[in-house]
Design a binder for these strands. Sequence first.
DNA 1: AATTTTACTTGCAAATTGCAAGTGCAAATG
DNA 2: CATTTGCACTTGCAATTTGCAAGTAAAATT
Lengths: 139, 139
Amino acid sequence: MRSECPISCSLEIFGDKWSLLIVRDLMLHQKSTYGDFLKSAEGIATNILAARLQALEENKIIEKREHPDSKAKVLYRLTHKGIDLLPILFEIHLWAEKYFTIPEELKEMVNDAKKNKETAIKTITEQLKKQLEEEKSIV
Amino acid sequence: MRSECPISCSLEIFGDKWSLLIVRDLMLHQKSTYGDFLKSAEGIATNILAARLQALEENKIIEKREHPDSKAKVLYRLTHKGIDLLPILFEIHLWAEKYFTIPEELKEMVNDAKKNKETAIKTITEQLKKQLEEEKSIV
DNA sequence: AATTTTACTTGCAAATTGCAAGTGCAAATG
DNA sequence: CATTTGCACTTGCAATTTGCAAGTAAAATT
């Protein structure tokens, strides 16, 4: 650890160009497997993805679960700790919306949420937590 | 740009282990010079600091200003775009407080703010913007 | 005039990233 | 039931980035 600063400690976990994209995919894009993450537009390399998944798991942001369809697949899910990153992603989204040119479809998606930020965050969080409880993890 | 995703675009600007620490120092620790940032607990290397300051300036998160005391010094300030990162840092702080062991002094600092999140963010933002308007930039 | 302060730059080794190809197990197919 | 395909990685290697130590140049202090 570089310091006791909460911001610094947090950045040591997700302060890179990829980790929060995996969290985004799990949280907002219904992605849940290695293959899903690979398909994302940003084009993460296979080794980097594997490394990030391992680090996120070690830091208890995500956990591995049995895939209902096949033993060959691994289902990744956000933990409660990971789900609690939603407010951060939400604020990043709002900031980006203000300062970048964002696709209209995405803007609309957030526009409703923006009006009632706290409620929107709560709704998505509850939904993710429900999903979590219904499955078994791979230990 | 890797994609049009607002999260991804944002991470291309501040998705690393150092950039948000500089923003934190400017925003919450009344630091404003190269030397100030170097002194921070995390121990950034001089070349990395110079590179990050340049990148943050290119991305209009910070700007250089005349230092009132000396021409040898450079005063760095957050732009409006940079000040608007406060809600993100605030949410990171809250997340960290929940999942890390944080020094008591820092916890107390945030505890009041937590009760009235929106108001606290507004107060600090206004204060930073006021400071901004009162100085001249180095162009 | 000489020293110190401030904001950097430079050189180089070490670590990280990114690309391409390969591996191993599970499941589908012939 | 043998073979191919799909999925989740691993490995090797080149390129980029990081981190440390030392150096530089202008301004301020002594």
